[in-house]
Design a protein around this nucleic acid. Sequence first.
DNA 1: GGATAGTACGACCGATCGTGCTAATTTGTC
DNA 2: GACAAATTAGCACGATCGGTCGTACTATCC
Lengths: 212, 212
Amino acid sequence: MAESLTTHQSAGERSRQTILETAARLATVEGLDGLTIGKLAEAVGMSKSGLYAHFKSKEDLQLATIAMAREIFDREVTDPGQSAAPGATRVLALCDAFLAHVEDGVYPGGCFFVAAAAEMNARPGEIRDHIAQFVAEWLGAIATAVEQARELGEIEPQVEPGQLAFEINALLSAANLAYPLFGDPTVLHVARKAIAERLDTPADEATRGPIS
Amino acid sequence: MAESLTTHQSAGERSRQTILETAARLATVEGLDGLTIGKLAEAVGMSKSGLYAHFKSKEDLQLATIAMAREIFDREVTDPGQSAAPGATRVLALCDAFLAHVEDGVYPGGCFFVAAAAEMNARPGEIRDHIAQFVAEWLGAIATAVEQARELGEIEPQVEPGQLAFEINALLSAANLAYPLFGDPTVLHVARKAIAERLDTPADEATRGPIS
DNA sequence: GGATAGTACGACCGATCGTGCTAATTTGTC
DNA sequence: GACAAATTAGCACGATCGGTCGTACTATCC
């Protein structure tokens, strides 16, 4: 009956996790700074001081929230995407996982890191550094997948992986931003179509059929 | 000497304008919501209540700030871009005006509306509606310029203006976001190059205006 | 059974939030 | 220069902010 081996997490660890998951979700709407201890406590059904006992400061809470958001993003986007076959397939899998993550609405305000990056991009400090670090790694993951596609001969050899990764991330971020703003899921398809075209070799354009 | 037409504004109107220009600038860093009356009053050198006398509520101040930001954007980006010759030239002029606007650093946090859209995209209300309205108009301006380029035969006829406008805006927004985040002006060139390629125009770096 | 550590609570702090009210001051008009 | 209007400051309010404190409950370990 002592399942403590597998269920190692204590009660405090469980509530800490609940707090951070709620914080990540709320932060996509209220912002990392607009998210207050009081509102977060109310959302998780705890007292302000009871919640705050888990963190040293608000910045500590924000950094922990970023770490949690990173775990969620890896679990929902990066990992499924990376499990696809290398090459253009994997690039598209990463994009589709991202767009599905946005459309699912696990975060009401779209991708946590797009919102966080837009909010903190002009506020120097540890928080911005962590966000920039994550964005850089995400761009790197796309660039690596692009480079593999190039090595496999699926895209033209003169394509610069960093350049294309920037473009792909721009399209994903714009879709993520426009989807809640206009409430129109069409933008997700628009972004998907743009990325798919970018992964097609322009030489094939003549033989390619009309896009519905 | 002093044109009575232009010097018509009263002292109150002048400070109101100063307030709103400062508010637009601060909002790109603090956010439209994070910007507080107290900090804004200190930034313009007024008392809190003296400043507040110009507005009915904070939401009124935010809406007025959006209107001011729209004026500034039109003056600095839209108008210069539209004054270029129709076609691909005008599309690129709009993009270059936007990128120059970002690089100039008139706003420390980059384009006001990218920041505002990211902040408010999941918060229904009048403020979000105004921002969405502006973004839609901006996308429409790009799409119109793209369509003219298509009619002039400068880009392939099967290009959908709305689709390409979305892509162009995505690249501009991503550059605007990454520039302060990484502090690297290279992203502006990356976006410019991607847009130029999309317009089938060789990125003739030599003849281009200075983007750092 | 008593001591200990983990966890959450309510009460409270000084500061600041948005927002009114009134008084003082500046400005424009005659 | 006087007067009315426009503009700004002073002051105070209730609410909420991040943060601290002491306390109580609950397991676990000796």
